[in-house]
Design a protein around this nucleic acid. Structure first.
Ligand SMILES: [Mn+2]
Ligand SMILES: [Mn+2]
Ligand SMILES: [Zn+2]
Ligand SMILES: [Zn+2]
Lengths: 138, 138
DNA sequence: TTTGTAATTAAGAATCATTCCAGTTTACAA
DNA sequence: TTGTAAACTGGAATGATTCTTAATTACAAA
Protein backbone atom coordinates (compact mmCIF):
# COMPACT_ATOMS: atom_id res chain seq x y z
CA UNK A 1 0.00 0.00 0.00
CA UNK A 2 2.89 2.31 0.81
CA UNK A 3 4.42 1.65 -2.60
CA UNK A 4 1.17 2.28 -4.41
CA UNK A 5 0.64 5.57 -2.60
CA UNK A 6 4.13 6.75 -3.54
CA UNK A 7 3.55 5.64 -7.10
CA UNK A 8 0.35 7.68 -7.24
CA UNK A 9 2.20 10.70 -5.83
CA UNK A 10 4.76 10.44 -8.61
CA UNK A 11 1.98 10.24 -11.19
CA UNK A 12 0.36 13.37 -9.81
CA UNK A 13 3.71 15.21 -9.71
CA UNK A 14 3.76 15.51 -5.94
CA UNK A 15 7.14 15.78 -4.27
CA UNK A 16 8.28 13.16 -1.80
CA UNK A 17 9.58 14.76 1.36
CA UNK A 18 10.66 13.18 4.66
CA UNK A 19 7.55 14.64 6.28
CA UNK A 20 5.25 13.13 3.67
CA UNK A 21 7.00 9.78 3.89
CA UNK A 22 6.48 9.70 7.64
CA UNK A 23 2.81 10.65 7.24
CA UNK A 24 2.33 7.92 4.65
CA UNK A 25 3.95 5.32 6.87
CA UNK A 26 1.68 6.18 9.78
CA UNK A 27 -1.31 6.11 7.47
CA UNK A 28 -0.35 2.64 6.26
CA UNK A 29 0.62 1.23 9.66
CA UNK A 30 -2.46 2.52 11.43
CA UNK A 31 -4.94 2.44 8.58
CA UNK A 32 -7.21 0.04 10.49
CA UNK A 33 -7.52 2.71 13.19
CA UNK A 34 -8.67 5.29 10.65
CA UNK A 35 -6.37 7.77 12.42
CA UNK A 36 -7.03 11.48 12.89
CA UNK A 37 -4.65 14.37 12.20
CA UNK A 38 -3.38 14.58 15.77
CA UNK A 39 -2.50 10.89 15.98
CA UNK A 40 -0.85 11.05 12.59
CA UNK A 41 1.07 14.11 13.76
CA UNK A 42 2.25 12.44 16.98
CA UNK A 43 3.30 9.22 15.29
CA UNK A 44 4.93 10.86 12.27
CA UNK A 45 6.80 13.19 14.59
CA UNK A 46 8.54 10.15 16.11
CA UNK A 47 9.84 9.21 12.69
CA UNK A 48 10.97 12.60 11.40
CA UNK A 49 12.43 15.17 13.75
CA UNK A 50 10.81 18.22 12.25
CA UNK A 51 7.12 18.35 11.48
CA UNK A 52 4.35 20.86 12.05
CA UNK A 53 0.66 20.20 12.44
CA UNK A 54 -0.04 22.59 9.55
CA UNK A 55 1.99 20.33 7.31
CA UNK A 56 0.04 17.28 8.41
CA UNK A 57 -3.23 19.01 7.59
CA UNK A 58 -2.14 20.37 4.24
CA UNK A 59 -0.60 17.04 3.25
CA UNK A 60 -3.70 15.07 4.16
CA UNK A 61 -5.83 17.58 2.27
CA UNK A 62 -3.59 17.40 -0.76
CA UNK A 63 -3.60 13.61 -0.77
CA UNK A 64 -7.34 13.30 -0.39
CA UNK A 65 -7.96 15.99 -3.00
CA UNK A 66 -5.97 13.79 -5.37
CA UNK A 67 -7.89 10.68 -4.34
CA UNK A 68 -4.77 9.05 -2.93
CA UNK A 69 -6.31 8.66 0.50
CA UNK A 70 -9.80 9.14 1.85
CA UNK A 71 -10.84 11.77 4.36
CA UNK A 72 -13.75 10.91 6.62
CA UNK A 73 -15.32 14.15 7.78
CA UNK A 74 -17.04 14.51 11.10
CA UNK A 75 -18.41 17.34 13.10
CA UNK A 76 -18.27 16.27 16.72
CA UNK A 77 -15.09 14.32 16.17
CA UNK A 78 -11.74 14.98 14.56
CA UNK A 79 -11.67 14.06 10.89
CA UNK A 80 -10.23 10.64 10.18
CA UNK A 81 -8.15 9.33 7.32
CA UNK A 82 -7.69 5.99 5.61
CA UNK A 83 -5.45 4.56 2.95
CA UNK A 84 -8.00 1.98 1.85
CA UNK A 85 -9.81 3.73 -0.99
CA UNK A 86 -11.80 0.69 -2.12
CA UNK A 87 -15.52 1.22 -1.73
CA UNK A 88 -16.67 -0.06 1.64
CA UNK A 89 -18.88 0.89 4.53
CA UNK A 90 -17.30 2.38 7.63
CA UNK A 91 -18.88 1.29 10.87
CA UNK A 92 -18.52 4.22 13.26
CA UNK A 93 -18.99 3.46 16.96
CA UNK A 94 -20.74 6.25 18.84
CA UNK A 95 -19.42 4.88 22.10
CA UNK A 96 -15.66 4.73 21.54
CA UNK A 97 -15.23 6.41 18.12
CA UNK A 98 -13.68 3.26 16.74
CA UNK A 99 -14.12 2.86 12.98
CA UNK A 100 -14.26 -0.57 11.35
CA UNK A 101 -14.52 -1.65 7.75
CA UNK A 102 -17.50 -3.55 6.41
CA UNK A 103 -17.43 -5.12 3.01
CA UNK A 104 -20.23 -3.85 0.78
CA UNK A 105 -22.32 -6.76 -0.46
CA UNK A 106 -23.81 -4.76 -3.31
CA UNK A 107 -22.70 -1.75 -5.24
CA UNK A 108 -24.80 0.85 -6.98
CA UNK A 109 -24.08 1.65 -10.59
CA UNK A 110 -22.83 5.23 -10.73
CA UNK A 111 -23.72 5.54 -14.41
CA UNK A 112 -27.32 5.04 -13.41
CA UNK A 113 -27.04 7.90 -10.92
CA UNK A 114 -25.74 10.17 -13.66
CA UNK A 115 -28.55 9.16 -15.95
CA UNK A 116 -31.40 9.20 -13.47
CA UNK A 117 -30.43 12.09 -11.21
CA UNK A 118 -28.17 14.08 -13.52
CA UNK A 119 -25.43 13.87 -10.91
CA UNK A 120 -21.83 12.86 -11.51
CA UNK A 121 -20.36 11.01 -8.54
CA UNK A 122 -16.67 11.43 -7.77
CA UNK A 123 -16.56 9.71 -4.41
CA UNK A 124 -18.79 7.86 -2.05
CA UNK A 125 -19.28 8.06 1.66
CA UNK A 126 -21.00 5.12 3.23
CA UNK A 127 -21.28 4.98 6.99
CA UNK A 128 -23.25 3.08 9.53
CA UNK A 129 -23.29 4.65 12.97
CA UNK A 130 -24.03 2.65 16.05
CA UNK A 131 -22.32 0.61 18.73
CA UNK A 132 -19.55 -1.95 18.66
CA UNK A 133 -19.49 -5.14 20.69
CA UNK A 134 -17.68 -3.57 23.66
CA UNK A 135 -19.82 -0.43 23.74
CA UNK A 136 -23.14 -2.19 23.19
CA UNK A 137 -23.43 -3.29 26.83
CA UNK A 138 -22.94 0.33 28.00
CA UNK B 1 -44.56 15.75 7.97
CA UNK B 2 -45.08 18.65 10.36
CA UNK B 3 -47.80 16.71 12.17
CA UNK B 4 -45.69 13.59 12.43
CA UNK B 5 -42.76 15.53 13.86
CA UNK B 6 -44.98 17.11 16.49
CA UNK B 7 -46.48 13.73 17.28
CA UNK B 8 -43.00 12.29 17.80
CA UNK B 9 -42.10 15.21 20.06
CA UNK B 10 -45.13 14.49 22.21
CA UNK B 11 -44.15 10.82 22.40
CA UNK B 12 -40.67 11.74 23.56
CA UNK B 13 -42.03 14.21 26.11
CA UNK B 14 -40.52 17.26 24.41
CA UNK B 15 -42.29 20.56 24.94
CA UNK B 16 -43.71 22.47 22.01
CA UNK B 17 -42.59 26.09 22.09
CA UNK B 18 -43.11 28.87 19.53
CA UNK B 19 -39.38 28.67 18.72
CA UNK B 20 -39.53 24.95 18.09
CA UNK B 21 -42.67 25.29 16.01
CA UNK B 22 -40.97 27.86 13.79
CA UNK B 23 -37.89 25.67 13.42
CA UNK B 24 -40.05 22.68 12.51
CA UNK B 25 -41.94 24.70 9.90
CA UNK B 26 -38.73 25.84 8.25
CA UNK B 27 -37.41 22.30 8.33
CA UNK B 28 -40.56 21.06 6.61
CA UNK B 29 -40.86 23.91 4.11
CA UNK B 30 -37.21 23.82 3.10
CA UNK B 31 -36.47 20.15 3.61
CA UNK B 32 -35.50 19.71 -0.05
CA UNK B 33 -32.77 22.30 0.50
CA UNK B 34 -31.36 20.31 3.41
CA UNK B 35 -30.94 23.63 5.24
CA UNK B 36 -28.13 24.53 7.64
CA UNK B 37 -28.46 26.11 11.09
CA UNK B 38 -27.97 29.67 9.85
CA UNK B 39 -30.68 29.42 7.19
CA UNK B 40 -33.02 27.79 9.67
CA UNK B 41 -32.22 30.57 12.12
CA UNK B 42 -32.89 33.33 9.59
CA UNK B 43 -36.14 31.82 8.33
CA UNK B 44 -37.47 30.85 11.74
CA UNK B 45 -36.64 34.32 13.02
CA UNK B 46 -39.13 35.73 10.52
CA UNK B 47 -41.85 33.60 12.09
CA UNK B 48 -41.15 34.19 15.78
CA UNK B 49 -39.90 37.52 17.03
CA UNK B 50 -37.50 36.10 19.57
CA UNK B 51 -35.01 33.38 18.72
CA UNK B 52 -31.34 32.83 19.39
CA UNK B 53 -28.88 30.83 17.36
CA UNK B 54 -28.03 28.77 20.46
CA UNK B 55 -31.63 27.67 20.63
CA UNK B 56 -31.58 26.62 16.99
CA UNK B 57 -28.49 24.52 17.59
CA UNK B 58 -29.71 22.91 20.78
CA UNK B 59 -33.12 22.21 19.26
CA UNK B 60 -31.67 20.61 16.16
CA UNK B 61 -29.33 18.55 18.31
CA UNK B 62 -32.16 17.46 20.56
CA UNK B 63 -34.36 16.49 17.61
CA UNK B 64 -31.66 14.53 15.85
CA UNK B 65 -30.63 12.83 19.08
CA UNK B 66 -34.20 11.58 19.31
CA UNK B 67 -34.22 10.49 15.69
CA UNK B 68 -36.94 12.99 14.80
CA UNK B 69 -34.80 14.66 12.16
CA UNK B 70 -31.48 13.79 10.58
CA UNK B 71 -28.29 15.79 10.93
CA UNK B 72 -25.83 15.64 8.05
CA UNK B 73 -22.39 16.42 9.39
CA UNK B 74 -19.72 18.08 7.33
CA UNK B 75 -16.36 19.54 7.99
CA UNK B 76 -15.78 22.14 5.32
CA UNK B 77 -19.42 23.10 5.22
CA UNK B 78 -22.06 23.96 7.78
CA UNK B 79 -23.98 20.93 9.02
CA UNK B 80 -27.27 20.38 7.26
CA UNK B 81 -30.58 19.02 8.48
CA UNK B 82 -33.48 17.16 6.95
CA UNK B 83 -36.92 16.05 8.00
CA UNK B 84 -36.94 13.06 5.67
CA UNK B 85 -35.64 10.24 7.84
CA UNK B 86 -36.36 7.46 5.35
CA UNK B 87 -33.17 5.73 4.22
CA UNK B 88 -31.88 7.35 1.06
CA UNK B 89 -28.67 8.54 -0.50
CA UNK B 90 -27.83 12.23 -0.38
CA UNK B 91 -26.14 13.56 -3.48
CA UNK B 92 -23.83 16.35 -2.31
CA UNK B 93 -22.59 18.76 -4.99
CA UNK B 94 -19.02 19.86 -4.43
CA UNK B 95 -19.61 22.85 -6.70
CA UNK B 96 -22.63 24.56 -5.14
CA UNK B 97 -23.20 22.56 -1.93
CA UNK B 98 -26.66 21.62 -3.10
CA UNK B 99 -27.94 18.35 -1.62
CA UNK B 100 -30.40 16.15 -3.49
CA UNK B 101 -32.15 12.94 -2.55
CA UNK B 102 -31.56 9.71 -4.42
CA UNK B 103 -33.78 6.75 -3.88
CA UNK B 104 -31.81 3.70 -2.75
CA UNK B 105 -32.44 0.79 -5.09
CA UNK B 106 -31.16 -1.76 -2.60
CA UNK B 107 -30.94 -1.89 1.13
CA UNK B 108 -28.49 -3.79 3.29
CA UNK B 109 -29.86 -5.98 6.04
CA UNK B 110 -28.76 -4.47 9.33
CA UNK B 111 -29.26 -7.77 11.14
CA UNK B 112 -26.55 -9.20 8.95
CA UNK B 113 -24.19 -6.39 10.00
CA UNK B 114 -24.83 -7.20 13.66
CA UNK B 115 -24.21 -10.88 13.03
CA UNK B 116 -21.18 -10.61 10.76
CA UNK B 117 -19.40 -7.57 12.18
CA UNK B 118 -20.75 -7.57 15.72
CA UNK B 119 -21.91 -4.00 15.21
CA UNK B 120 -25.34 -2.60 16.04
CA UNK B 121 -26.42 0.09 13.61
CA UNK B 122 -28.57 2.94 14.86
CA UNK B 123 -28.45 5.20 11.83
CA UNK B 124 -27.03 5.26 8.36
CA UNK B 125 -25.21 7.91 6.40
CA UNK B 126 -25.11 7.35 2.70
CA UNK B 127 -23.65 10.07 0.53
CA UNK B 128 -22.39 10.42 -2.98
CA UNK B 129 -20.22 13.45 -3.55
CA UNK B 130 -19.71 14.91 -6.99
CA UNK B 131 -21.19 17.50 -9.32
CA UNK B 132 -24.73 18.42 -10.26
CA UNK B 133 -25.89 19.24 -13.78
CA UNK B 134 -25.20 22.99 -13.43
CA UNK B 135 -21.80 22.58 -11.82
CA UNK B 136 -20.59 19.80 -14.09
CA UNK B 137 -19.69 22.18 -16.92
CA UNK B 138 -17.57 24.27 -14.52
C1' DT C 1 -57.47 28.70 37.05
C1' DT C 2 -53.48 28.91 39.53
C1' DT C 3 -49.16 27.14 40.84
C1' DG C 4 -44.73 24.66 40.85
C1' DT C 5 -41.02 23.25 38.47
C1' DA C 6 -38.37 21.02 35.09
C1' DA C 7 -37.55 22.22 30.51
C1' DT C 8 -36.43 25.69 27.42
C1' DT C 9 -34.46 29.98 25.85
C1' DA C 10 -31.12 33.83 25.50
C1' DA C 11 -26.69 36.18 25.00
C1' DG C 12 -22.29 36.06 25.01
C1' DA C 13 -17.97 33.76 26.09
C1' DA C 14 -15.22 29.78 25.19
C1' DT C 15 -13.72 25.99 22.43
C1' DC C 16 -11.02 23.73 19.14
C1' DA C 17 -10.22 21.59 14.78
C1' DT C 18 -8.81 23.55 10.76
C1' DT C 19 -7.16 27.14 7.66
C1' DC C 20 -4.51 31.07 6.54
C1' DC C 21 -0.32 33.80 6.28
C1' DA C 22 4.31 35.24 5.26
C1' DG C 23 8.80 33.93 5.53
C1' DT C 24 12.18 29.98 5.01
C1' DT C 25 13.65 25.71 3.29
C1' DT C 26 13.92 21.98 -0.01
C1' DA C 27 13.07 18.39 -3.77
C1' DC C 28 14.17 17.57 -8.07
C1' DA C 29 14.31 18.78 -13.12
C1' DA C 30 17.39 20.71 -16.21
C1' DT D 1 25.23 22.81 -9.52
C1' DT D 2 21.54 25.79 -9.87
C1' DG D 3 16.83 27.73 -10.22
C1' DT D 4 12.40 27.54 -8.90
C1' DA D 5 7.96 25.86 -7.79
C1' DA D 6 6.48 23.24 -4.13
C1' DA D 7 6.61 22.19 0.55
C1' DC D 8 7.33 23.36 5.35
C1' DT D 9 6.88 26.11 9.61
C1' DG D 10 4.74 28.35 13.70
C1' DG D 11 1.71 31.45 15.01
C1' DA D 12 -2.42 34.03 14.23
C1' DA D 13 -7.08 33.92 12.55
C1' DT D 14 -11.36 31.63 11.60
C1' DG D 15 -15.93 30.09 12.33
C1' DA D 16 -19.20 26.70 13.40
C1' DT D 17 -20.59 24.73 17.48
C1' DT D 18 -20.81 24.21 22.46
C1' DC D 19 -20.89 25.90 27.06
C1' DT D 20 -22.43 28.78 30.94
C1' DT D 21 -25.52 31.13 33.72
C1' DA D 22 -29.57 33.45 34.49
C1' DA D 23 -34.30 34.49 32.96
C1' DT D 24 -38.46 32.70 30.99
C1' DT D 25 -42.10 29.42 30.02
C1' DA D 26 -44.93 25.09 28.86
C1' DC D 27 -47.78 22.23 30.91
C1' DA D 28 -48.98 18.75 34.53
C1' DA D 29 -51.04 18.65 38.79
C1' DA D 30 -53.69 20.77 42.26
MN1 LIG E 1 -12.50 2.11 6.31
MN1 LIG F 1 -31.94 13.93 1.86
ZN1 LIG G 1 -17.27 1.18 20.61
ZN1 LIG H 1 -23.85 22.02 -8.04
Amino acid sequence: MKTSIIKKMREKGLKLTPQRLAIIEVLVDKTHLHPGASLIYREAMKKVGSLSLSTVYSTLNEFSRHGIIKMLEFDKMENRYEGNIMEHINLVCKGCNKIMDYKVPVSIDLKEVAKKARFWVTDTRLEYHGYCQECKGK
